[in-house]
């Protein structure tokens, strides 16, 4: 085992600010949806919109970061070993079988994660953002007059936005649980907080990497 710096500073900043925003958006979103009263409707809408814009800025920077660092390659979905990964979660995990894929700096996501995160980044979050932007700007001010885009009201937009948001919450629930399936119950959480994780050592790869870093 070796202590490896696996989550870079920006990555952690991105992850935790995104986590905060997702929770905050969900909370204010439910208030707007009429599920409860907490901030007051007007404030809930204002906070939700502010958080949404912050989220979009974060996404923009993160997309840049992914391409600038080449990290985007981590998310290319692959179907090799996917059955092994599913088997692990359904069977192996109960027998304390070893993880079927090895986590390294260059490949920190298992095939199932790749697939899910890819779907999240390419389908769920874009759908959520686009429906959210339409929700915000289907009416807008122009030269002292209010203009509308050509839609029959909010029904469709709101339904897509709500549905995707609910899926997002389902994702978060599973995600939170799967954190506990690392080497130990807290090892994944610790890694995302400190950046370092104890990984099974692969001499050739990491030494090479360290050299190039120097």
């Amino acid at each position: 085992m070796k202590r490896v710096y696996i989550y870079k500073a920006y990555e952690r900043f991105w992850h935790w600010s995104q986590a905060f925003l997702v929770f905050f958006l969900a909370f204010t979103g439910f208030e707007i949806h009429g599920s409860f009263e907490f901030f007051g409707y007007k404030n809930a809408v204002m906070y939700h919109n502010m958080a949404a814009i912050s989220f979009l800025i974060l996404i923009a920077f993160t997309i840049f970061w992914h391409f600038a660092t080449g990290e985007w390659k981590q998310y290319i979905p692959t179907f090799t070993n996917i059955k092994a990964q599913i088997d692990y979660y359904l069977v192996g995990i109960f027998k304390k079988a070893p993880h079927p894929t090895r986590k390294t700096e260059l490949s920190k996501l298992n095939p199932l994660q790749k697939l899910v995160y890819f779907g999240l980044k390419v389908i769920l979050i874009p759908l959520l953002s686009i429906s959210g932007l339409l929700y915000m700007f289907y009416r807008y001010e122009s030269n002292g007059q209010i203009k509308s885009i050509n839609v029959d009201g909010l029904g469709g937009i709101a339904s897509v936005h709500t549905l995707v948001a609910l899926f997002m919450i389902a994702f978060v629930i599973v995600h939170l649980y799967l954190i506990t399936t690392g080497t130990t119950v807290f090892s994944n959480l610790k890694a995302m907080l400190t950046g370092y994780e104890e990984l099974e050592h692969d001499e050739d790869e990491s030494e090479e990497k360290e050299k190039t870093n120097e």
């Binding site: 949806h33 009429g34 909010l154 029904g155 339904s159 709500t162 948001a165 609910l166 389902a170």
Partner: peptide, 14 residues
């Protein structure tokens, strides 16, 4: 109207 209405299919699936 947000807060007043909901799409029952969306609620069911989501």
């Amino acid at each position: 109207i947000p807060g007043r209405d909901e799409n029952s299919a969306v609620e069911f699936i989501g």
